[in-house]
């Protein structure tokens, strides 16, 4: 769907709230997967997704087209709700290098070697990274957003996103190789 068609769809939803279901049907799975990757448990993911779409429905009048896909606006709402959930649950979003290294240098060397070859290990290492690094890597390689869209979601500039992405990859590589 081109940006022009998507913009007309959003404008119709702004005039007629019932037309918001079209946007919902289009972006539900995308937003659900993103949230599901960021939070623990299906219930939490459903809560965050529900809150995300209700927020989008309630604030749709304020949406202004800026040349970016409507999904970027939805990702931004979902990102804020995930971050809010992290804060409410007291989840540590600060990276703990020692913990990640401890996982890598576990006593069960055999298991560790196996994990290194396993995708779960990669996922485990990724989860040990900071919230911002995880967010950038996930938005970039899981959600496949552009740097501009990531900047819109995270409230950064495109250049800043590029720098942060480079550093996040370096840290992720360092954690994987240790």
């Amino acid at each position: 769907m081109s940006l022009e068609i998507e913009q007309k769809l959003v404008e119709e939803a702004q005039r007629n709230p019932e037309r918001f279901t079209d946007l919902y049907d289009k972006y539900f799975e995308q937003i659900y997967r993103y949230v599901k990757r960021r939070v623990d448990g299906v219930d939490v993911a459903e809560d965050v997704v529900s809150q995300t779409f209700f927020d989008a429905f309630n604030y749709l009048k304020r949406y202004e087209f800026r040349g970016l896909p409507f999904s970027a606006w939805l990702y931004k709402i979902a990102h804020n709700n995930v971050l809010k959930w992290y804060r409410e649950k007291g989840k540590a979003v600060v990276v703990d290098i020692d913990e990640a290294q401890a996982v890598a240098h576990s006593d069960d060397v055999i298991v560790t070697v196996k994990l290194q070859e396993n995708q779960e290990y990669v996922k485990k290492v990724l989860e040990q990274m900071s919230f911002e690094d995880q967010e950038i890597l996930r938005l970039k390689f899981f959600e496949e957003l552009s740097n501009i869209e990531i900047a819109e979601v995270m409230g950064l500039t495109a250049n800043n996103v590029g720098v942060k992405l480079y550093r996040a990859l370096q840290r992720f590589k360092q954690l994987l190789n240790t």
Binding site: E18, F20, T21, Y24, D25, F28, S50, F53, F54, F57
Partner: peptide, 8 residues
Amino acid sequence: LRAKIMAQ
């Protein structure tokens, strides 16, 4: 969720 949004 879709029904809730429609209801709203």
